[in-house]
Write a protein that binds this DNA or RNA. Structure first.
Lengths: 233, 233
DNA sequence: AGCGTTTGTGACAGTTGCATGACAGTTTTA
DNA sequence: TAAAACTGTCATGCAACTGTCACAAACGCT
């Protein structure tokens, strides 16, 4: 797996030994790993990096894992990032509480690293298929993310890097409307210093390639809101 | 949760007692439940009903749960339906195997029904947000906020940005009466420098679109006070 | 019924947001 | 090292949307 495509995992864990074990194992699996050792830092890093998934320890100094989770889930840019909670407690009521806060999954310590990785994979399979080497499809467009190949109606298309990333974002959640802002974050990166209007230009370029065969335009412009991949107007 | 929006859950379980307990609990939570008692039937029903989620027992007569899972995940219409596996075995290797077959989650018997429901919710939250929120509805009007789409009686409506925002405000608290002042704050922004009467015009425009199909007017004018979204005259 | 007040609405001019082609600087490729 | 490909910005043109006004209609009160 190429670095550029690797999914980024944020690990939040205050015990350094555990954290490093996890980091080692996840990196071995080809993930990009970023870390935080307490709740404050976790929220900060999450907003900066927009990781594809967060592994979150329940017991943290100062801000508890459950609070971190709530804060992440209630703020826009991080709300959709899946969270897997790690906890020493096994009581069901706690688990339920964790899930209802918005955590997407739950593992009880001591857990097997193999199972954690399987759960991570299972989760990414639905939220970020491209990070897992799956091929994405919408209508007659498809992307082989492993080979970086895009076809429409089985005919190969030639996209530039930015257009490719842009299309990938669209394809991972068809029909969802993306604001220019969030596209800048996802396609150009959080720290990019680029004019908002640049998004328009690249969407235009993507459109041109996508429709080069005379096919119907599948990118919807939502005035005042952004763009989406969609079949009807 | 309204019946119309209820997510459909397919339960696959050969022990009738367990199946009925589950059905009872899930229906109580507002889900629509369909069932199957063996692997063959499961695949059949899954293709027929295209449920939003499948709860799948690992141990089944004839075709094992893991095979059912594999078949569902490899065939088109059912490939994206999340599967939660139920199993008596607790060994990690089995769990990993389950997840790698394409199961999206995993619960070990005996499990708590509360936790199962929480997991179902957590799962639906990502795959069918409309079944769990993010969609606003009032009478036959609904807004998919993620897609920025508005329908009335399932027919799509075309709103301008301001009308969209206005309708969103109404839909978030149906029946509440909004003064022109507070609408200005919410729809135009606190610092907007706009004539109060402009609200009237936009309400008018919103009305026109909403009722274009000859439907009943759902916006109530409260003389001297403002407007609200309401079903009675 | 009559009157003052509040609301509905069509028209219109001004503004905004978006698509697009051009271009110069930069990076990648051969 | 030269050529090709890509990137970000800008200017332009157009269509959609916006806010205001003037007048008509509806309403509530006496």
């Amino acid at each position: 797996m190429v670095a550029q495509d690797a999914a980024t995992i944020l690990i939040v864990e205050d015990e350094v030994a555990q954290l490093e074990t996890l980091r080692y194992n996840l990196e071995k699996e080809g993930f990009r790993v970023v870390t935080a050792e307490d709740g404050e830092e976790a929220v900060l890093v999450a907003n900066e990096e927009l990781p594809d998934l967060i592994v979150l320890d329940w017991m943290l100094p100062s801000v508890s894992g459950i609070d971190v989770c709530r804060r992440l889930k209630s703020a826009e840019p991080t709300a959709d990032i899946p969270v897997i909670m790690l906890t020493a407690r096994g009581e069901e009521s706690d688990r339920v509480r964790g899930l209802e806060t918005g955590a997407d999954d739950y593992m009880v310590k001591p857990y097997g690293v193999g199972e954690l990785i399987a759960r991570i994979r299972a989760r990414l399979r639905t939220t970020r298929p491209s990070a897992i080497g799956k091929t994405l499809a919408f209508e007659d467009i498809s992307i082989d993310t492993e080979q970086h190949r895009v076809t429409r109606d089985d005919k190969p298309l030639k996209l530039g890097p930015t257009e490719y990333r842009l299309l990938t974002v669209f394809m991972e959640r068809p029909k969802r409307v993306w604001s220019r802002d969030s596209l800048l974050d996802r396609v150009w990166g959080m720290d990019a210093d680029v004019d908002l209007r640049t998004v328009d230009v690249h969407v235009g370029r993507l459109r041109k390639v996508l429709n080069s065969g005379g096919a119907r335009d599948l990118i919807r412009t939502v005035r005042g809101a952004g763009y989406s991949l969609d079949s009807s107007d």
